[in-house]
Simulated assay, not measured.
Amino acid sequence: MAPINRSRGRNVHIYDANDPTTVLGGLILANGVINANFYSMMEILFVFTGAFFLQDEGNTKIEKDDRPLQPGKYFIVADDPFDVNNEPYLTRIVSRATGTRTQTFRDAVRSRDRRCVISGKEVLGAEYDYWWGFDAAHIFPLAYEGYWIDHNYGRWITIPPADPTKGSINSVQNGLLLDSSIHQEFDNYGFSVNPDDNYKIVYFFPDRHNLSGKRLDQRFLDDPQRPVDQLLRWHFQQAVLANMRGAGEPVFEHDFPPGSDIVGDVLHGPKAAERMEYELFSRLGAQVELFPAAGRDDVSM
């Protein structure tokens, strides 16, 4: 079955006021998204050269305030022409990175967090070294380390990994301890954390955990080893592009029963080359450097 895009279930739709029949993108509205958040998302999705504002179907201007965003159609009214942000999305699936290269990363994240930092669920067996159901997740995916190096994302890291030969991408500052099911949602950009809105958790698809609109707790934010804002911001920007631009990026299957034609599924689906490389890296531990299909400028942080 071909992967679905992310437009299913959207109840917020975005248009150019000068072309009110062409949908530019949209959103599955979750708890906690306010009008000001929506304006910030517009500034990620589009490149504006002048002032703009949003209005609803009744031609009422939407203020950039803390009122909850409502379902409906929204029209961008801009002083000057604007473009859709063409920054490539880094194709990503559920991460399964293992091996000695990530062991020190995993151990550092476990030692720091000892709970899912999104849900707050404690690892009750931590003192006995039982970590079932919890994963150390990379914010910026390990599979794209070549891109990380080329764009010097390591400049944000102030705490190198215990073994510097493992690369700055394996710093504890690029990690979160997550409940395993929440890890899948994080890797698929089903939700993200917005560091520019007091670390609000923002869901982009139905939130079965009732976490959207909540914030990371203060004890985590006070930890000197916590992830750096630049990486959380990068993940949030990717989540907005993946879920809201156009019809959204494909949602790939990850649960393949024994005997499934995984290769066939990948090769006959969208983004086949990128997904195949990521599958090889995450499933086989292959040392494959991944890059976006198109050139990409560094993300402004």
Rank of each mutant, 00 (worst) to 15 (best):
Y147I: 12
Y147V: 07
I149E: 15
D150F: 14
H151G: 05
N152Y: 10
R155F: 00
I157A: 06
T158C: 08
T158H: 12
I159W: 00
P160E: 03
P160A: 01
P161A: 00
A162F: 06
T165W: 02
T165Y: 10
K166F: 14
S168E: 05
G175D: 07
L176W: 04
L177C: 15
L177V: 11
S180G: 11
S181C: 05
I182S: 06
H183K: 13
H183I: 05
F186G: 01
D187M: 02
N188V: 04
N188R: 13
Y189H: 12
F191H: 04
S192C: 03
N194F: 00
N194G: 01
P195D: 03
Y199H: 14
V202W: 09
Y203P: 07
Y203C: 07
Y203S: 12
F204P: 06
P206D: 13
L211V: 15
S212T: 12
G213M: 15
K214M: 12
R215G: 08
R215W: 08
D217L: 10
F220C: 09
F220L: 14
L221P: 04
L221N: 14
P224V: 13
P227S: 14
P227G: 09
P227I: 11
D229G: 07
Q230Y: 05
L232W: 13
L232D: 00
W234V: 01
H235I: 10
Q238F: 05
A242Q: 07
M244K: 03
E249M: 09
F252T: 02
F252C: 07
E253W: 00
E253I: 04
F256M: 02
P257R: 00
P258K: 01
P258T: 04
